[in-house]
Design a protein around this nucleic acid. Structure first.
Lengths: 334, 334
DNA sequence: TCCCCGTTAGACAACGTTGTCGCTTGGTGT
DNA sequence: ACACCAAGCGACAACGTTGTCTAACGGGGA
């Protein structure tokens, strides 16, 4: 900037005025400065600019999702990107992979980078460590799982209701031996979906067979093994509720491997691309990712605009998407 | 920092020393400073720090992909994230959506933010506008499509070979009426794949029916309509080569809608999750996204470390992944 | 006792900007 | 001819840090 000023024969401040399109610069000076800037390949430095003026605002948002390459994460991320773009905010994105340490170190890094707001699908059990940032006024919205240990905005889906919806759907079709394949029970979403499953049984005065409930499945491979084992039981399940997208894929694979994809009913949680083209089409409990992203952006932007209202807790309803796999009847009624 | 210094009864510089773990600070002073920092919720400001010391380095990378929510984009992005994390670099990510204006404005923004390096799947026809950044030493690696108008590092897949591979596979099975559904011909990848298609025909001394070649398909809906129309021809294709992942999905949907998924062969370009579980399994030309990301990171990091070697052009071989849909024979030979 | 030296800490300027204020210029009204 | 005013531009300090240089201190050797 100093060099541009020298070349244009003006002061630093005048270059700044031109760069920021401030008024009170004569057209001739403006043009001289612009020519000098072009000749010298001058590029405005946003970091320095923000340091001086925006009282520390950087025009960037931190977004911590479970896994950028997972379709749920990346859909939500994309929705947030769209909203952020309308506001001229850049997105610093990273994956957490259910790793609490990674969450803490990434948050620390983002805070140090002075992101204007934080969006996170948490991995850790408690987020007390964020209390000071919250007090300091860092806008913060949680997705998919509510915070524990602090109170801040969040947007989640009604997992209990989703689990109940899935289970009721299968019970209504006559299934009585419904298996559940789920992630670690200490994960909020997994616990909720499982609770919904139990509720649905209870509502009919029935009780599920505990032997058919498998949790602690951290990845697709574990899910595959679990479903395989279930299908080999002496009295195997007639239906499966897969409580997360990768586990649902695992179930699809396991069923196909045994040639049972048309005999055992399957309902998944989380919709994903191609769920409608596999055969039979996958019946799932869908989460509206674009609505989630929209809500998250709405809450975050309100905070950015200075809202100090008490935290909003948005709980979106999941929907049952019927496509075929969930409508396979139990053998007895065939 | 000033407040921390005051509370600890030391100078600014000493706080800086403690924060940066510099030597020559007595344990007692160190502890006093740390306590003061904790009490005041002090957070180091990376932007200011970098402004002063790193000669402008921000410890961040810009990554512009076609669409964060697309499986190809997000897989590559995830690979780059992993590599960036090992180096302590943050990733600023955004989607281009085949929009040249958006590309230019996002690049401008990233430059202004002083990212240390730029990774991009370009949308524009020419990237001359980046010449000055390149001269200025901004490390830059292109993915998926090589740059035009400038010469810099890039990592692409051999699209011609991929197109030929797909087509040869179908020709070898006896198909002679192979349709192509493709994106705009001016897109590098689309053109290459189409050229590979033509090459395969030529190698056998055959020539394709131009009526079966449809390009300019920008999205899934367009692909769906195109495949529908192809199937309704008086003399319809016996096989389809879908030259991009969303078009392949479109083809799958269109075929399923007509109940032809087991009669018309299909080979896609780009692998994606679930391609193996649909029926019949999708035969595709696969790109190794993690290898792409690895290579990109390798090239970019070499530049970050000061390499001024002339640009590397990495062309990775695609592979044919046989799963069933591409092995459906033409009606005549059945 | 004195001097030297290593350790520890502070003063000051600088990184690339912009907010504030003040100065010069030239035109307007009387 | 004079006061007055707005437009146009520059000097200076500040944003939150850190590199450089220097000063104070205390301990050990002669």
């Amino acid at each position: 900037m100093r060099e541009v000023a020298a070349l244009a024969g003006v002061s630093l401040k005048t270059v700044s005025r031109v760069v920021n399109r401030e008024p009170n610069v004569s057209p001739s000076v403006r043009e001289r400065v612009e020519r000098a800037a072009a000749k010298l390949d001058y590029r405005h430095n946003l970091a320095a600019s923000n340091l001086r003026k925006a009282h520390g605002r950087t025009g960037s948002l931190g977004a911590l999702v479970q896994d950028i390459s997972n379709s749920f994460s990346s859909s939500v991320l994309r929705g947030i990107e769209n909203a952020a773009r309308d506001r001229g905010l850049a997105l610093v994105a990273a994956s957490l992979d259910e790793d609490a340490d990674r969450e803490m170190s990434l948050v620390r890094d983002l805070v140090t980078r002075r992101v204007d707001g934080l969006i996170m699908m948490p991995s850790s059990d408690r987020q007390d460590y964020l209390a000071s940032e919250l007090r300091a006024g860092l806008p913060m919205v949680f997705i998919d799982r509510p915070p524990t240990g602090i109170d801040c905005d969040y947007v989640v889906v009604d997992n209990v209701r989703g689990g109940r919806l899935a289970t009721e759907h299968l019970l209504a079709a006559g299934h009585r031996r419904i298996a559940v394949v789920a992630d670690d029970e200490h994960i909020y979403t997994a616990a909720g979906r499982r609770a919904g499953f139990a509720e649905a049984y209870a509502a009919r005065g029935l009780s599920p067979d505990p032997a058919l409930i498998v949790s602690g499945l951290r990845n697709e491979a574990a899910g595959l093994a679990a479903v395989d084992a279930l299908l080999r039981l002496a009295d195997p399940p007639t239906a499966i509720f897969a409580s997360r997208n990768t586990l649902c894929v695992a179930a699809v694979r396991a069923l196909a491997r045994c040639g049972l994809q048309r005999s055992v009913a399957l309902v998944g949680f989380d919709d994903f691309p191609l769920a409608d083209v596999i055969e039979p089409g996958l019946t799932v409990i869908g989460q509206d990712t674009s609505r989630i992203a929209e809500k998250v952006a709405e809450l975050l932007f309100a905070r950015l605009d200075g809202s100090t209202a008490r935290p909003h807790h948005v709980i979106l309803p999941p929907t049952l998407i019927v496509r075929g796999s969930g409508e396979i009847p139990p053998p007895a009624s065939r």
